[in-house]
């Protein structure tokens, strides 16, 4: 079935499947992302959620913010649990033991649950070709346990386990693991990146990922006010600047064909993005330049325009 694209915000369903009353922090971008992914999925879905902020804030017994069937098993095996669910639905439908309709399987996991502890299970599930949508909510650290670095933490970010010090002045000394590229290399039919400041782009990518036969991977950049040391009201602006500076590359790869879906006509210097966030406050000018060079090289590879002349 061809994907029905939402052309404007007005077409996005009003129904909330991730309901108010959840206990996410003020300004939580994950919550925004989840609301919209679920709007794309609709009622006929089963959600598998890795351990993490989302799981914790949404289900303190006896409260649940989920209006759709939802399962939390553990941290590292979201994709494996989804494999079982998808396989079971397939065979039970074949044997006419459940209603004969498509039920989507959607995974939500953080960057730790995807880049680190859940990496193997996800790689296995993608290789096996299960029909499911895996959503990585990337807030670039282990926020649920109190802001520890993951392999998705960017170079130069302060976290409680990558603190800047005399020997390691930049804080996080390694570059962010490029998850979308890694999962695209599995040859799955759909890989995309998105962020909350471009909601239509996000929701349409979720929809495409759900509609495609086989595995889909959607990587969503979700700024975290306490973890990134930003005021809650600035979350969308930080997300937007992430795109405008080229820190977040927003694209989709359908059957290996890569296309930027949000392409800023002029690219802003990364310093604008970095200076909004307390987690980068310690960075030296050299560090900022280093990040700029890294981003420039990446943007060139992806066909983004060069950095705009400084104004």
């Amino acid at each position: 079935m061809a994907s029905q694209t939402f052309r404007s915000i007005k077409e996005v369903p009003l129904e909330e499947y991730f309901t108010p009353g959840h206990r996410a922090c003020q300004g939580c971008a994950e919550a925004i992302a989840v609301r919209h992914v679920l709007k794309a999925a609709g009622r006929d879905v089963i959600v598998v959620n890795a351990t993490g902020c989302l799981e914790v804030v949404s289900t303190p017994y006896p409260y649940t913010a989920w209006a759709v069937p939802w399962y939390h098993v553990a941290f590292e095996n979201t994709a494996a649990v989804a494999s079982g669910i998808e396989s079971a639905l397939k065979v039970l439908r074949r044997k006419r033991l459940v209603a004969d309709k498509k039920i989507h399987v959607v995974c939500f996991a953080g960057d730790g649950g995807t880049a680190d502890i859940g990496f193997q299970a996800l790689s296995g599930a993608l290789e096996r070709g299960h029909d499911f949508l895996y959503v990585c909510l990337d807030n670039e650290a282990y926020m649920n346990t109190g802001i520890q670095r993951s392999s998705s933490t960017p170079y130069g970010a302060w976290t409680t386990t990558s603190p800047p010090g005399k020997v390691k002045p930049a804080g996080q000394m390694t570059y962010k693991k490029d998850l979308p590229s890694i999962f695209a290399a599995h040859g799955i039919p759909y890989v995309a990146t998105a962020t909350v400041s471009y909601p239509l782009d996000l929701i349409n990518k979720a929809k495409k990922g759900l509609d495609v036969e086989g595995p889909a991977y959607l990587h969503i950049y979700t700024p975290c006010p306490p973890g990134w040391r930003i005021p809650s009201e600035k979350v969308i602006q930080v997300s937007r600047l992430g795109v405008q500076t080229g820190m977040f590359l927003i694209y989709e790869a359908e059957k290996g064909h890569l296309r930027l879906t949000v392409k800023p006509s002029r690219r802003k210097p990364v310093a604008e993005y970095l200076k909004m966030q307390g987690r980068f406050r310690h960075l030296s000018d050299e560090d900022v330049e280093k990040i700029q060079r890294f981003v420039d090289e990446r943007c060139a590879k992806f066909g983004l325009p060069p950095l705009e002349a400084s104004t």
Partner: peptide, 10 residues
């Protein structure tokens, strides 16, 4: 894990 998921849907 896959058995757990499959069993949970019946």
């Amino acid at each position: 894990s896959a058995c757990i998921g499959a069993s949970a849907v019946g």
